[in-house]
């Protein structure tokens, strides 16, 4: 009797261990984002990560059969924390550039190269003067290379717009998709000067040694392009934009 009890207990243990193994088989991927760049990524009223990239990321994880966990991190240290292994992807509106590609790898783009635009309080802005941009962005490097322009950098994109509003800067340069809702809601702000196209689109950043994850993400992104899911999501989050894929 005792023997039999022990035996069933052992079998039950083996069974639960088996299911636990199966569950942990789905790889956990920690998704790093900034949470301050609507409509790409932001924290909603409940304090959760929301936006275009949340939808894209969740769908990618479903298709690649990964279980995903969202993590927010300051933009400034978003790359060092990826290479140090605190999370496994950067999905934070990060444009693919050669400079970044030397340090990390990018998946295929899940968002096309979007024009960057200048938001200003005056329509006489001509591309010179003090221009605000977020630290460590393609826009900041672009302003630094512009003739007659002085760059002032801010830690968050929101602060670049605030600098224009309080007169500290003549204009702010950022992705047009980020500025568009702000300019639309604010009577004082307008787009000025010519738009510039920077970068090669937005991709998911992964560690250079993480080729397997990059491959999985590429397959999932390709399938989302093919069946139109990416277009639908772009049209959902970016008002007036046509899905290009």
């Amino acid at each position: 009797m005792m023997m039999k009890k022990l035996f069933t207990f052992g079998a039950a243990l083996a069974l639960t261990a088996g299911t636990a193994m199966a569950e942990s088989h789905a790889q956990t991927v920690r998704m790093g984002t900034e949470g301050a760049y609507p409509p790409y990524n932001f924290l909603n009223d409940a304090g959760e990560v929301d936006g275009y990239e949340r939808d894209v990321g969740d769908e990618l994880c479903k298709r690649a059969e990964l279980s995903c966990e969202w993590v927010t991190n300051d933009w400034d240290s978003i790359i060092p924390n990826l290479v140090s292994g605190n999370y496994d992807t950067i999905i934070a509106g990060m444009s693919i550039t050669d400079e970044r590609d030397e340090v990390i790898d990018f998946s295929e783009a899940y968002f096309p190269a979007d024009p960057s635009a200048f938001a200003s309080m005056s329509d006489s802005f001509d591309g010179t003067g003090v221009i605000a941009a977020q630290t460590g962005t393609i826009q900041a490097s672009h302003v630094a290379s512009m003739e007659g322009a002085t760059l002032i950098e801010f830690a968050t994109p929101d602060e670049t717009v605030a600098a224009v509003k309080n007169g500290e800067a003549d204009a702010a340069l950022a992705d047009k998709a980020f500025l568009e809702p702000i300019v639309a809601e604010d009577a004082e702000l307008m787009f000025a000067g010519d738009d510039v196209v920077l970068g090669d689109g937005i991709g998911v950043g992964v560690r250079e040694s993480d080729g397997e994850l990059k491959e999985k993400l590429n397959v999932a992104i390709a399938s989302m392009k093919e069946d139109g899911t990416l277009n639908t999501l772009i049209e959902k989050w970016f008002e007036g934009m046509k899905g290009p894929y």
Partner: peptide, 24 residues
Amino acid sequence: FLLGVEDIVYWARELGGSKNPRFS
């Protein structure tokens, strides 16, 4: 916040930043 812990200054900056009617 440098250490990845969301403290009061982080939340004050996040909550105080302007909020667009499309996303909030």
